[in-house]
Structures are given as structure tokens and as C-alpha cells.
């Protein structure tokens, strides 16, 4: 393209699952150390796109590259956090965090890394605990520490706080912001919450559905930490809400049409 070099580059990507096309023609360029949120109605392909960046799913068409290298499979340069913590219950918190490091570093180095990231998520006291002894929010913090432990360039987060209560979510927002500023990671963050997206991100990408596609790209030009009653925040919130409402109504209408066609 000849323009500025982009760190994470999604080029004209399409994904089809057995005849069902999730999306096509997705283009997205993300700078290093940028926090980007993906918003969109359920089923528009947010998780699918994230899985493709992770290398868990292959693109049907197009390509994704990171730092100029095409993504072909999962790798330790991309860490992922899911909605479910997916910690290994047979390992202690510390061993969960060092899991991605096994065989690569000495025991001592591993312990140091685990200690560093567990401190970052305020769980030093629980390093010998087992996952089932922790609350959901604590488990998710371990999952974040585990993803960070392999020092990835990109952190992919798929509704990481979706299963948590309001209060825990706010605490984790603050922790994630601190981690983002401290570690200078590039973060791609999927969420259902407009507020969450605006609170955290440098950019909010809004996706539409049927077919899945990107319909808007909002830079969030508000100083951090952001206040919920900031006028620009409220303005953005309403703008995005309007956009999404249209998309969701479209889905509902299609489903209704579909049903009336089949059941009358």
C-alpha cells in the first residue's frame, strides 16, 4: 500500500464455516501499543476474528500479519484471554502462569516471571492456591497474568470481564489500564458493553452483521482516566448506541421474517 507500516494488519479477510459466511472483506490496521475494542451484535464474528488473529482459525480468504509476518498458527507473540478463565485446575496459580514458559527458561527465571506478573494482578498471596479456591475475578486475573507471562506483543481479549459482576469489572478495568500503560502491549478487546469499550480504548471498531463487516471506527479522543459523565464520552456512547440499535433491529427483523415464512 505504500503508506505507514502497520503493526497488526488484517487484509481483506473472509471466514466461512461450511457454507455459512461469517464475514468478508474485513480490513483493519492497528498501531503498536494501541488499545482497540471490537463492538457488535451477537454473531457478527468478533470472536471469530479474534481467533483468527490468535491463529486458532484460518482465514478463508485474505491474510493477517503481525509485525510484517503473516499469521499461520498460534504463537507466543499473541496471548489470549477468554470469557472463561480456562485455567488448568490441576496446577497451582503459579504453575498456571508459568505454563507457557515450560522448557524454555530455567526454573528460577520462571519463578521470577510468575512473581512479577502475579504482583501486577495483585495475586502474590495466592500463588500456591488452586484455581477452584479463587473467585471468578481472581481467576480472570490469573488468566491475564498467564497470557502476559510469555511476553506477547499483542493481547487478545474476548469478553474477558463478561462473566463478572459490575464491581469486580470496574476494579479489573483499572488494573488492565495500568497493565496496558506499564507493559505497552497492543490490545484487541472484544466486548458487548459500549461503556466498557469507550472507557478503555483508543479506538472503538463497530461491526455489523448479515453480512458481518466493519461499519464504523471511532477514535476515542478523551484523556485517561475517563469519567462516565464526560460530555465527549456521553456523545460517543449515544452515537455508537444508535449505530448498534440499527444493526440489532435488522437482525430481529430478519429473524421475524424468517419465522413468519416458516410458521404460517
Amino acid at each position: 500500500m505504500g503508506c505507514a507500516y502497520m503493526f497488526l494488519q488484517v487484509n481483506n479477510v473472509a471466514k466461512t464455516f461450511a457454507e455459512h459466511e461469517v464475514f468478508s472483506g474485513i480490513d483493519l490496521s492497528i498501531h503498536e501499543n494501541q488499545f482497540v475494542s471490537l463492538l457488535g451484535p451477537s454473531g457478527c464474528g468478533k470472536s471469530t476474528l479474534l481467533s483468527m488473529v490468535a491463529g486458532l482459525e484460518a482465514a478463508t480468504e485474505g491474510s493477517i500479519s503481525l509485525g510484517g509476518k503473516t499469521i499461520l498458527e498460534p504463537g507466543t507473540d499473541r496471548g489470549m484471554v477468554f470469557q472463561q478463565p480456562a485455567l488448568f485446575p490441576w496446577l497451582t496459580v503459579k504453575d498456571n502462569v508459568t505454563f507457557p514458559l515450560k522448557d524454555k527458561l530455567s526454573k528460577k527465571e520462571q519463578d521470577q516471571i510468575a512473581a512479577h506478573y502475579l504482583k501486577m494482578v495483585h495475586l502474590t498471596r495466592f500463588k500456591e492456591a488452586y484455581p477452584h479456591e479463587l473467585s471468578g475475578g481472581m481467576q480472570q486475573r490469573v488468566a491475564i497474568a498467564r497470557a502476559l507471562a510469555m511476553d506477547p506483543k499483542v493481547l487478545l481479549m474476548d469478553e474477558p470481564f463478561g462473566a463478572l459482576d459490575e464491581q469486580t469489572r470496574h476494579i479489573l478495568h483499572d488494573e488492565l489500564m495500568k497493565i496496558f500503560q506499564e507493559t505497552k502491549k497492543t490490545i484487541l478487546f472484544v466486548t458487548h458493553s459500549i461503556q466498557e469499550a469507550i472507557k478503555l480504548s483508543d479506538r472503538v471498531i463497530v461491526m455489523g452483521t448479515r453480512p458481518g463487516r466493519i461499519i464504523a471506527d471511532f477514535p476515542v479522543d478523551v484523556e485517561r482516566p475517563r469519567q462516565r459523565d464526560d460530555s465527549r464520552v456521553i456523545e460517543l456512547e449515544q452515537e455508537i448506541m444508535e449505530l448498534l440499535k440499527g444493526e440489532i433491529n435488522k437482525v430481529l427483523k430478519e429473524e421475524l421474517d424468517h419465522e413468519t415464512k416458516h410458521f404460517t
Binding site: 472463561q84 505454563f99 507457557p100
Partner: peptide, 26 residues
């Protein structure tokens, strides 16, 4: 649980190591 396998794969785990370190204990 498929999420264990997915999580392990994103940490660069595959093949025999995936089987013995994740699938067997899981």
C-alpha cells in the same frame, strides 16, 4: 473442555505436549 485446548494452543502448546500436559490431566 475445548477451552483448555484453545488456551493451551494460544500458549504455543501442540502435539505430544498438548496431549500429555493438557488432555491427559484434563
Amino acid at each position: 473442555p475445548p477451552e483448555f485446548i484453545k488456551a493451551a494452543r494460544t500458549m504455543g502448546t501442540k502435539g505430544m505436549r498438548l496431549f500429555f500436559k493438557v488432555e491427559v490431566p484434563a
